[in-house]
Design a protein around this nucleic acid. Sequence first.
DNA 1: AGCACGATGCTCT
DNA 2: GAGCATCGTGCTT
Length: 182
Amino acid sequence: MRKTLPAPFFDRPTLTVAKELLGKYLVREYQGQTAALMITEVEAYDGPKDLASHARRGITPRTTIMYGPPGYFYVYFTYGMHWMVNIVTGKKGYPAAILIRAGMTDDGALIKGPARLTKHLKITKNENGKPAVKATGLWLEDRGTDIKSYRLIKTKRIGVDYAGEIWANKLYNLSLVLKNKN
DNA sequence: AGCACGATGCTCT
DNA sequence: GAGCATCGTGCTT
């Protein structure tokens, strides 16, 4: 079972979409090669009031895509060397996106960390602003994965202490962890 | 296992 | 000009 996630999937509350993205696949087709990662960790940035979000200062050239319609990629550059990939959620005009932070390859290797993930899938500025459809070469898929053997862990978001107590402590980081571990 | 730090450049003030 | 939704290395406990 392989179903490309359609735009309406992303046109729902950001936290709902974030939760449902776990266990789905981020698929990359690049220079004739196809690679896929099962998503195991995501982070939500939700709305204009979210002080941890890039949209906290309103529309800028960089954040415009976050204000656009759902189902588009928001790719940005940070720390002088790293690309981060997000999928835009919510209606046009409402700035929200989900950062994809980790995933697992078919042979069970965990790609942990948003910069490693983009490096692995060769995602750069080229993908910024593109829709999550096959023609882009980067899209999301439901492969009917059974995630019953995992449990959902919620933690605070990484590296956003500047956002103040309220927003820095929101449990907007969601990840899958294998049961019977720890 | 837990810091501290450097790399390196875009984005916004 | 400062700060950054990070990572890897190399040090200290």
